[in-house]
Write a protein that binds this DNA or RNA. Structure first.
Length: 483
RNA sequence: GGCCCCGUGGUCAAGCGGUCAAGACACCGCCCUUUCACGGCGGUAACAGGGGUUCGAGUCCCCUCGGGGUCACCA
């Protein structure tokens, strides 16, 4: 058996779409699993959509996700160049072969003419299909127009009868009547091939054995096979992938700010979590396992686990994965990662980041939630004294002053302001007074934080704030309760 | 609308003719606990509908319904 060669062939649009990323991932997993060759090809035949720097985004994203290609624009390879715009001259000769064999033809119809005839057909309530108008031009007429420099495109000449189809590793055998197929454009007026033609030519020339792509290509694939056959080329194995959806009706879209890899990274999602989750949207290892490193995904990947139906991208589940990955980080790694987020609200305050990080790690789902969670340490929030009410603790704004004064007394007596000393002093005093922990600690935490819930309790917060700030907040709270 | 594909809980998803239809997320409850989170335990919730085939169907076939894709000189 010959070596498997696959390709990821994105268009440089400026961002890496999650659907595209997942395609790349499955492509990569499949290839590595079978010790194949992974090719990166840039499909930039639409010159109107050229975006500067877009190719670098593709490189960077793939690399940071740990997907490395064996052949590509930057590293070359035996079948380059790997950028379609640089291959412009390779397509027309193959189109001419098709023209000579009658499987394609020159078309001189203008956009206006097309629009007119199309409108006429649709006015009758029929479905428009290119009418093969230019197929009936005589060779002389064609020569004449060509010599006159009339702009032209090259169209595929699809048979009017018979059927075309292909086998897909996910979707099985798909067959369509040729009569429903349009004579698609192969070469555009600017001389560039369309995607439809370029992918066939390049996949052949680059010896691609397995084509993995989104299922939106399912309906045009029969036409590609007609091309392969006409050219006498071997048809690759197809693996079409189900769509990634935003919800039951919409695909993931750029509009909602949740479609691009960079959106998630910017929000504070971990690449490993995103990749792990993405792998499971549309694919299953066949068992209960959910956590995978890239190497483990490669090991576990099997085309048989690919789903046929569109899958909804569940941000909540992604977030759960992210939180799980964060919990698995070493404290050092977490501290490093969370520091910039702490800095957003705590920079320059001399806060004990190490201790704060310990408190925050199990409470971090996505890093962009961090600033809001620790902001109270920088600035005492406005709050309502109803927060002092806690039924189980039997505390309220009425009982709080007494509790706070109790705490104040204990805290004042602490010589060395460390967390363990604060803890010891407070707990000791509470026990001695025969009180319940919460009776003192709940109001104290409210007085120091002004929040319903906080990372860490009263003791941790007091230690983090330092003596001065703690006592000041206590005093303020007493005033507030008195007023 | 034509053509193609798909259809197990709210979501992902196992199931591949024969145990009470796994598991995860989310949600709810309990425990732990100075709040929250983590952790532990438990719970609600599904084979779209209708016909067949079969001793037996979520698993096979047909129809209906529902959803998606595609009908560009975009990819």
């Amino acid at each position: 058996m010959s070596v498997i060669r696959t390709r990821f062939a994105p268009s440089p649009t400026g961002f890496m779409h999650l659907g595209g990323l997942r395609t790349a991932l499955y492509d990569y997993l499949f290839t590595r699993k079978h010790n194949g060759v992974f090719v990166l090809r840039i499909e930039d035949t639409d010159q109107d959509r050229f975006v500067p720097g877009a190719t670098e985004v593709i490189y960077d994203t793939l690399r940071s996700c740990g997907m490395h290609w064996d052949e590509g624009p930057d590293i070359g390879g035996p079948y380059g160049p790997y950028v379609q715009s640089e291959r412009k001259d390779t397509y027309l000769p193959h189109a001419k072969t098709l023209i000579d064999s009658g499987d394609a033809y020159y078309c001189f119809c203008t956009h206006e003419e097309l629009a007119q005839r199309r409108a006429a057909v649709e006015a009758k309530g029929e479905t428009w299909k290119y009418d093969k108008h230019c197929l009936h031009l005589t060779p002389e007429e064609v020569q004449q127009k060509l010599q006159a420099g009339t702009p032209y495109v090259v169209r595929q000449n699809v048979p009017l009868t018979g059927q075309s189809g292909f086998d897909d590793l996910v979707y099985g055998t798909i067959t369509v009547d040729n009569s429903t197929l349009d004579d698609m454009v192969l070469i555009k007026a600017d001389g560039m091939p369309t995607y439809n033609f370029a992918n066939v030519v390049d996949d052949h020339l680059m010896r691609i054995t397995h084509v993995m792509r989104g299922m939106e290509y399912l309906s045009s694939t029969p036409r590609y096979n007609l091309l392969y056959r006409a050219l006498g080329w071997e048809v690759p194995t197809y693996i079409h992938l189900p769509t990634v959806m935003r919800d039951a009706h919409k695909k993931l879209s750029k509009r909602d700010g949740d479609a691009f890899y960079s959106d998630f990274i910017d929000k504070g999602y971990l690449t490993e979590a995103l990749i792990n989750y993405l792998a499971l949207v549309g694919w299953s290892p066949g068992n209960d396992r959910e956590f995978f490193t890239m190497d483990e995904l490669i090991e576990a990947f099997d085309v048989k686990g690919l789903s046929k139906s569109p899958a909804i991208f569940d941000i909540e589940k992604l977030t759960w994965f992210n939180a799980a990955y964060i919990r698995q980080m070493t404290p050092e790694a977490y501290l490093e990662k969370v520091t910039p987020w702490f800095d957003q609200v705590l920079e320059g305050r001399g806060m004990d980041y190490k201790r704060l990080a310990e408190l925050m790690q199990t409470r971090t789902e996505v890093f962009n939630q961090v600033p809001d969670m620790v902001r109270f340490l920088a600035e005492m929030p406005e709050y309502d004294i109803s927060l002092y009410t806690h039924k189980k603790m039997k505390t309220s704004a009425d009982t709080a002053p007494e509790a706070l004064r109790f705490a104040q007394g204990v805290l004042t007596g602490i010589a060395d302001w460390t967390e363990s000393n604060i803890h010891e002093a407070l707990m000791g005093a509470i026990a001695q007074a025969g009180l319940k922990n919460g009776a003192i600690l709940w109001p104290l935490r409210i007085a120091l934080s002004g929040l319903q819930s906080t990372p860490g309790g009263a003791v941790e917060i007091a230690a983090l704030l330092g003596r001065e700030e703690t006592m000041a907040r206590l005093e303020k709270a007493l005033e507030k309760l008195a007023g």
